[in-house]
Design a binder for these strands. Structure first.
Lengths: 348, 348
DNA sequence: GAATCATGAGAAAGCGTTTTCTCAGAGCGT
DNA sequence: ACGCTCTGAGAAAACGCTTTCTCATGATTC
């Protein structure tokens, strides 16, 4: 009877701890002990167990372990759009850093659907030991309500009043001002900002930065144009940009700038001779555009690995809700070839 | 005692099924039943349970469910390099398609370390209901040995003799030949292939395709140059390309082509007037380079979602190892502006 | 009106681990 | 030689859920 049961299990199921125990002639508790090196086990028995495990190619079932240990060795990340190189870079940095500590990452793409974010984050949290929320589009109120339920949580490009949530953010307001300053110092008098997604917090920061810039430079014309966050929206804005008469264009990000570059090229508008264009983010492609893109570099590759470090800190000091660092990174203006002094106008 | 125990659990732990059962005055079995709508439950009791669950914001613990159900609703993907836009696109397509069916994806990046692939894949498989292996660099022998242990498995850009493993692959040999043909028909006589990573199966396919091309075109000069798979390697090959004297360059992929484009531009070599360049993959950026890149388009966005469909098919027909489709996609040559007839030479 | 049946809820087993609890036996001191 | 501690291994509980098994209750049928 018992044998029959065992036989069925052996053929049907994966090899489990019980099979190893049987083969080694010990209890499964002992197998667990030697596999984890937790308690002292007689060397002879340990060797027997290890031999049995090796012969059966036993690998502990992670689900069983997770249930017993109350941890999954997995963290979740939710991003608004996996097609965006910035988020791809963060995901990559996070994944590699986490892997080094034996953690995996589960990924959730909200596809810019704001209402899905909280749900995805909650699901991810339940499956994982923590979650990093990347540039969430949800409202401040919703974020404040959600954050405590997600702990351990790392925020990227958003902050919380809850001091026990570390956040990593880029000072977009500062960066866009520096880019505008760069254009002005080249001699541009008419600027235009091609803005990003409405619900993007980083777009609001850029807007705020430009407001500040305006007050410091009342003489400079600065138009605001609606745009998006990808190639196509940059490309589609070509006409509007040309019509604006601006000579210095601040694109929402590198993707938009690249789309614009392409559109301008098609229309025969020369960059930077006729129009200067700046991006934002310094994605890997930025220095390979023609002309190479002047942009504000954010530490895109470190963001992911730093996010992991902050997550690990929280996981290790389990329970204690110490106040966490809220890092803010200043972008670094990267001057390339897409910006230059404007052509001298016949009549100034 | 019991009360004390419960109280401690309530404060310490997350709310569990037992808490809902207590509150609704039923057994936890009944709670499970109404949550899953499995068996008939008295409507009154069901309502009471649902109310209690809602009030306590009860969400079943996925780890517990996974253990009981023997499935995790998660699939794993292992890629050689998350920085590669092709793999990013596949990951994205997979993730979105899987999410539509309520599955999540766990990601593993082997960082081109061949020896890690099997381990990562095995670990992923143990945690997930299936795994998709993306362009694995391992040897055929190793793949054949690994594949059965991973089932359900979907292979991308590799195939197995095991007929129960579906595979999705692109006919790189065919694509590269068509690109070469395109250059020749424009009038190019001297071609060069900037090859990719040594262990890449798709690179071998291109090499084989070009061998075939050679026999069909004995009059055409075709040089083979060593390269890599990213921007930088393309950029670094600039001098070698110029030195080669070739007028038609077949880059391993779009990334390499873009790096080369950039390098040629810096050197003042005009594309396509002086040299024609082709890429491969048609990554989203390809049509925004200057000039827009002629390339061979692979259905990069569908690959991920199709991979999910194949995975789902296997998961649904659990156990039955029916023979699975081995799809092969013909790339479509996308002629843009980076290729043109070569300049007429003074003396032919 | 008694035997049969359908309904539905609780008890309990099971999923695969880890870990606490328990206890047998060995080693030691007196 | 007796009792003590100590080591180490098995039994059993725990993790949080699903599902089978069991059985009470009330409805149905002749």
């Amino acid at each position: 009877m018992g044998r029959g049961h065992m036989a069925r299990r052996n053929t049907n199921r994966r090899v489990g701890i019980a099979d190893v125990a049987d083969k080694a002639g010990v209890s499964h508790a002992t197998v667990s002990r030697v596999m984890n090196g937790n308690a002292a086990v007689d060397p002879g028995i340990a060797a027997r167990v290890r031999a049995a495990a090796a012969e059966l190619k036993y690998q502990p079932n992670p689900v069983g372990r997770s249930l017993a240990l109350g941890k999954t060795d997995t963290i979740g990340i939710v991003v608004p759009d996996l097609a965006n190189p910035t988020f791809q870079a963060i995901l990559r940095g996070l994944s590699i850093a986490a892997a080094q500590d034996g953690y995996r990452v589960l990924i959730a793409d909200s596809s810019e659907v704001t209402s899905e974010e909280a749900i995805l984050a909650g699901e991810a949290r339940r499956r994982c030991d923590g979650v990093v929320l990347c540039a969430p589009r949800m409202s401040d109120a919703e974020l404040e309500e959600l954050a405590p339920t997600l702990h351990p949580l790392v925020l990227i490009n958003r902050t919380t009043v809850a001091t026990n949530t570390p956040s990593l953010s880029v000072d977009y307001g500062q960066g866009i001002q520096e880019l505008a300053q760069h254009l002005v110092s080249l001699g541009h008098q008419r600027l235009a900002f091609l803005s990003g997604p409405e619900h993007s917090a980083s777009n609001r920061q850029r807007l705020a930065g430009l407001d500040q810039f305006r007050t410091g430079h009342p003489d400079i014309e600065l138009q605001m144009l609606d745009g998006g966050s990808n190639f196509d929206s940059g490309h589609e804005s070509t006409e509007a940009i040309i019509a604006s008469g601006a000579t210095g264009i601040l694109a929402f990000n590198d993707l938009v700038a690249m789309g614009l570059l392409s559109g301008l090229h098609e229309r025969g508008v020369r960059v930077p001779e006729d129009i200067s264009v700046t991006g934002f983010d310094d994605i890997p492609f930025a220095k390979y555009t023609t002309p190479p893109l002047t942009t504000a570099a954010v530490p895109i590759n470190e963001l992911g690995s730093l996010a992991w470090r902050r997550m690990r800190e929280q996981i290790q000091q389990a329970g204690e809700s110490a106040t966490q660092a809220q890092d803010e990174f200043p972008p670094r203006v990267e001057i390339r070839k897409s910006t230059a002094a404007p052509a001298l106008k016949p009549a100034s």
